[in-house]
Write a protein that binds this DNA or RNA. Structure first.
Lengths: 217, 217
DNA sequence: GCGCTATATTCTGAATACAGAAACCATATT
DNA sequence: AATATGGTTTCTGTATTCAGAATATAGCGC
């Protein structure tokens, strides 16, 4: 069977650096000190730099000529463009999915929605469930390059995602949107489903502008 | 202009390696010998590897766990998915362009089409003009991430593009399609223009099936 | 002669070393 | 006191070195 294929070190590192950018351990605007970060991650600079180059190519970091890597500033304007972008990319993936395979996904997708309803108050858990739901929905798309692009683009958006944490009202609405998307899938109307999927992301962007309310309740 | 800003070496290297993949000096299936390639490019392995990591992340190369980097095989099925993908990405960029800015582009785009008509027999020059036309058409799109994705995806397709080189008949048809796209832009009907843009790419894919032998022996 | 195993070589992946640019700091000068 | 300036230190970008896996080669047994 499959032996333990040693993944290249840069893969792990890229994931860890991504996590640090998303959770703010590497905050916006921060310059990255390669030696210190390498020490923290217990690796040498070489694979770390390879990971940083990867992330820079995806837009999660920026490289300034002789000044190294930096976490780009948070930019509401950029965020407002990213949400529709991910929406359209996912919509494309959905339209290009195999309709039969999609029908097989209806039931697990339904169950996931139930799970989300049960986790209305757990912001982080809900975000995870949301991610998995979208991933599952798009798992029937055979366009590998599109899927790669989506996977590489979503972290850019996640950086803003964590900011708003819509709260239960937003969560409820999003769950309803998921239900409607799923209904269109069940009907075999992929175009309708795709439109609703875009709308789901666009609606997510709408929550960016307003002040971030602490999730107290 | 600011010329003193030394671009990182990996940028040059990535471009040179891309060129070698596209023109076949690094043929499909070829494994990349890092020391040899570094010697040929007169650089050390470190920035070369950084460039290879970049290109792998874009899908132009593949990395096998402990066997290094490889040029992925040509895959007609992949190509047939890449053309519509680039088409949809460009269509998106067009729909998101500033209508006013687009109107300002109509005249230069018209001139470029004339230049293409004059270069009907020069396959390589024509391909260049085509590239520039599309780049110009999308230059009014302000979505930086989408533009980056497009720029990173097109080389994947170029690998197949050079194979067919449709000939003057295909060229003539493509030029007509460009004219029709431009007409829709002139009318301010971006959706129509976007649809025609997708079709232009899809038609490009149609020329792939022809004279390319598969591997089965 | 053919196949298998042991050994040598090659190559990648990672660590370390080095050179030059940028940032920092302290001092001196107006 | 504020600012310019020279020197020092830090950090990046690149080169080189090292270790271990993968592949090729030669030797050995059958």
């Amino acid at each position: 069977m499959d032996q333990t294929t040693t993944a290249p070190l840069r893969r792990d590192i890229a994931e860890q650096v991504t996590a640090r950018v998303l959770d703010g351990r590497l905050p916006a605007e921060a310059r990255i000190n390669e030696v210190r970060l390498a020490a923290e991650l217990k690796v040498s600079r070489t694979p770390l730099r390879e990971a940083l180059v990867e992330l820079t190519d995806r837009g999660l970091l920026v490289a300034e000529p002789r000044r190294g890597f930096r976490v780009p500033p948070l930019n509401l304007d950029e965020a407002r463009k990213l949400y529709p972008l991910v929406g359209e990319l996912e919509a494309l993936a959905l339209r290009w999915s195999s309709p039969q395979d999609l029908l097989g996904l209806v039931e697990p997708l339904e169950r996931q929605i139930d799970a989300m309803r049960a986790a209305l108050d757990d912001g982080r858990g809900l975000a995870d469930l949301d991610d998995r739901w979208h991933a599952l929905l798009l798992s029937a798309c055979g366009n590998a390059h599109l899927m790669r692009i989506i996977a590489q683009t979503k972290p850019l958006l996640k950086r803003y995602d964590v900011l708003y944490f819509g709260g239960p009202d937003r969560a409820r609405r999003s769950i309803d949107e998921h239900r409607d998307i799923l209904a269109a899938v069940r009907d075999g109307d992929l175009n309708q489903a795709a439109r609703r999927l875009v709308q789901n992301w666009v609606n997510g962007a709408a929550y960016l502008g307003q002040d971030r309310r602490p999730s107290g309740r």
